[in-house]
């Protein structure tokens, strides 16, 4: 019997409906979980995604043929029932539920279970087979609550301001940047942005209330920046654009900052452990909550994680995909974003 969802050279394929989920090669019909470049690629004939992701992928991919769906709005293609459910990863990110003849599969794309205040929070969807990411699927990853991390970030900004330095905070321009922006304390100073972040934020503003930002232009003087904060994509690190802002202090917000080596390698002054993916316990808990017997791990520490799931009694395996999670954040930004 053909499985409801199969992994082939193009992506995750539902043969019965002739639809791909987050395909990595150009196909006819694609259902897209979210706007990050490794999940929403260029060149498909028809895109289907959550309505709040529509302006985002249009911004990134240009003039594409895209249909927006509401959460929980089911639509049927050749007797296969599809619906989108919040994944909590970034704004507009969905899990895709696929049902055929009573069998239910769920594909998470990327997800996190903590409410970040920007995206609609993750929702547990019961299923038989759960296709999950496991970017941070190691017991070494345990996140501290967002409120605590944001408090540290705001304190860091205030300290830098007292030292008369500019704070530069790196975060991926779609998702992380708006999450940081939402919780920055605008009473401390002005929030400046890099062009890539400003453009993306303007797309998102109609959907979420966010503090005001000021775009850095050629006319911006570095004296104006002193004591204030600059939100920049990781690819800007080490660029002349940054060097002109001296004196400054740099910080990065990413799950990888949990590792000392990762912080040192990036030559960042301060690492904040803040991720848009699940940590170890959140992965295990959400898998359990779905009630699924079969688990397929798509990206991250897949081998280690699925082996542990098998020891817990799940029927777990890994499938090769081209999703990158937070793993290669820098390259992803570098490839897909030129202001």
């Amino acid at each position: 019997m053909i499985p409801l969802l199969a992994f082939n050279d193009n992506g995750i394929y539902c043969e019965q409906a002739n639809v791909y989920l987050d395909p990595w090669k150009p196909v006819k019909n694609a259902i897209i979980t979210h706007g990050h470049a490794d999940h929403s690629r260029w060149g498909h004939q028809n895109y289907m995604t959550h309505i709040s992701n529509v302006p985002i992928i249009k911004h990134r991919l240009g003039d594409i043929n895209v249909t927006g769906k509401e959460w929980n709005e089911s639509f049927t293609i050749n007797n296969v029932k599809f619906s989108l459910h919040p994944a909590g990863h970034i704004i507009g990110s969905s899990q895709i539920r696929v049902e055929y003849k009573g069998e239910v599969w769920v594909f998470t794309g990327d997800y996190k279970t903590e409410d970040d205040g920007v995206s609609v929070p993750y929702e547990v969807v019961k299923c038989n087979t759960f296709i999950t990411e496991c970017t941070f699927g190691l017991p070494a990853f345990k996140w501290t609550p967002q409120a605590e991390v944001m408090c540290n970030i705001n304190n860091w900004w205030a300290e830098n301001k007292a030292d008369k330095k500019t704070s530069i905070l790196f975060g991926y321009s779609l998702g992380k940047a708006q999450r940081l922006l939402k919780h920055l304390d605008a009473n401390i100073g002005t929030i400046y942005t890099h062009g890539a972040i400003e453009n993306m934020t303007n797309i998102i503003r109609p959907m979420v209330e966010l503090p005001p930002t000021t775009l850095i232009t050629r006319e911006t003087k570095k004296e104006d920046l002193l004591g204030n904060i600059v939100l920049a994509p990781p690819s800007a690190h080490g660029s002349t654009w940054i060097r002109k802002m001296t004196p400054f202090v740099t910080g990065t917000a990413s799950g990888w900052m949990a590792f000392r080596g990762a912080r040192r390698r990036r030559a960042i002054d301060k690492g904040f452990v803040l991720s848009d993916h699940c940590d170890w316990f959140a992965l295990l808990e959400s898998i359990k909550a779905t009630g699924a017997e079969k688990i397929i791990c798509t990206h991250g520490y897949t081998e280690v994680f699925s082996r542990y799931l098998r020891e817990l009694g799940y029927d777990a395996r890994t499938e090769k995909t081209q999703y990158e999670g937070e793993l290669t954040e820098n390259e992803k930004v570098a490839d897909s974003e030129i202001i």
Partner: peptide, 9 residues
């Protein structure tokens, strides 16, 4: 994989 600042790379 390396160690120190090359951890995990």
């Amino acid at each position: 994989r390396g160690s120190g600042r090359r951890t995990n790379l």
